[in-house]
Amino acid sequence: MNIVVCIKQVPGTTQVKINPDTGTLIRDGVEAVVNPFDEYAIEEAVRIKEKNGGTVKVITMGPPQAEAALRTAISMGADEGYLISDRAFAGSDTWATSYTLTAGIKTLGKVDLIICGKQAIDGDTAQVGPGVAEMLNIPFVAWVRKVAELNETSIKVERMMEEGYDVVEMPLPALITVVKEINEPRMASLKGKMKAKSANIVKLDTTNMEVDHELIGLKGSPTQVLRSFVPERKSSGEKISGETAELAQKAASVIQNLGIVK
């Protein structure tokens, strides 16, 4: 089974805080990490490999330093890392990113299953996984919480919906995006870390990938950020302490006054 995992390097979430006084981002000790949802994707791929055999290739698009994310994935059990990096890709939105990742995946030979995290925690768009599936023209299921069955030709998964889950089957090759519930990612072993350190990361750019230059980077991106701003913080309201009955009564009257309880 040839499995590909698409990952993204993101700023560690807890570090991205806003200074309420200046309205600027606090980046003290910001550390770049593998997008947490992608760790579930890596873990699931490695588990499938351990059970069914095969290889796990991880691919990412980003600045040269995103190589570190690929090494983290290898330390968790992935076999090969591919870094798509080229200034020509700068300014890519989710459409151009999907396009470029698709071009990168096409260099990897036969692929049976592609796994992505459900979304990246910096942009929170959840668009690149389905975008890649569409551009590769392969079937796709989002929000996978369990791979129930997998064989050479098809996969059966559980898809989380708002009120429960669907059991969905599709032929391979296919793409799934996974949610947190699917597994518990392992810590890298010492052996894994050693392997990651010496692993050869394959570099992909406009010279060794087939891309239409009209469809990459800013030119290929339909969307553009007009403005970003720090949202207005809700001023913290009233905080009261006292006897239980008193507190409950206060809460009851506040809720009552909201006029939303039928």
Partner: peptide, 18 residues
Amino acid sequence: TRPAFGGNLMATIIAPHH
């Protein structure tokens, strides 16, 4: 307009030519 970075930043997005 949408939240990013878990709601710590808001971004207004346009698609002028598409």
